Computed example of a mutant assay.
Amino acid sequence: MKQFIFSLLILASLGSVAQVKLGLKLAPVVSANRAKNDAQTVENDGSQMKFSVGLIADQSLSDTYFLSTGLIYLPKRAAFRNADNTVEEEYKLQYLQIPVSLKLFTNEIAPDVKPYIQIGSGLEIKVFDEAEDPSYTTIEKFTPIDVPVILGAGIEYRAGINTTLFGGFSYQRGLVNTVNEAAAGFEDLQVRNTVLSIDIGLKF
């Protein structure tokens, strides 16, 4: 947590120098995953609501194009079961995400209200992993990074000279297999993350 706070302070300082628009984002997220193996005996094991928070920074490229980045704390899960339910495991994962995306704004649809769409990717660094039950032994080691595709849409409302409120949603599809090493019999196990996020925050 100290490293996360320190990184936020660094990003805020850089934002001040570069004259970017800084903001805070709070996001309820639904974390799920796509689990499979070659024999197709492994299945997904549901989804779970979590909570993400972080600092964002938007740099104007033109009146309608913005480069968006930030530093986001993003919790996820890896959960799977086999077809006959003799194996059912869940692991907690936590990442620091550095997203890089392009925000494209339309014209105002109401006074001070602009919709946007967002597309990009990013780098996620795993900072924590833990088995829900200490007896779980299938996944022995997790991959230290993930790279998601990020697609989103939302609306920004300029509430004042220096304050902008925003709300929207995003879909994040992890491209990297989070399983680095697995127990015998599960060497071909693949678990990739999927996150649906409701993005709420303000920029100042």
Rank of each mutant, 00 (worst) to 15 (best):
M1Q: 12
Q3V: 12
S7K: 10
V20F: 12
K21L: 12
G23F: 01
K25D: 03
V30Y: 12
A35T: 01
K36T: 10
D38K: 02
D38P: 15
A39S: 11
Q40H: 12
T41N: 13
E43R: 02
N44F: 11
D45C: 13
D45F: 15
G46C: 08
G54L: 01
L55S: 06
S60G: 14
S60N: 15
S62T: 09
S62R: 06
D63A: 15
T64G: 11
L67H: 06
L71A: 08
I72H: 08
A78G: 06
R81H: 10
A83D: 13
E89S: 03
Q94N: 14
Q94H: 12
L102E: 03
K103S: 02
L104T: 09
T106P: 08
N107V: 12
P111N: 12
V113T: 09
V113I: 13
P115K: 09
I119K: 09
I119Y: 07
G120N: 00
E130V: 15
S135Q: 10
Y136F: 12
T137D: 13
T138L: 14
F142T: 02
T143A: 10
P144I: 00
V147A: 10
V149H: 04
I150Q: 00
I150W: 00
G154C: 01
G154F: 01
R158F: 06
I161C: 11
L165M: 11
L165P: 01
F166C: 06
F166G: 00
G168M: 05
Y171D: 06
Y171P: 02
G174S: 03
G174R: 00
N177S: 04
N180H: 11
A182M: 01
A183F: 13
E187M: 10
T194L: 02
T194W: 07
S197F: 11
I198S: 05
D199E: 09
I200Y: 15
G201H: 08
L202M: 13
K203G: 08
K203C: 07
F204W: 10
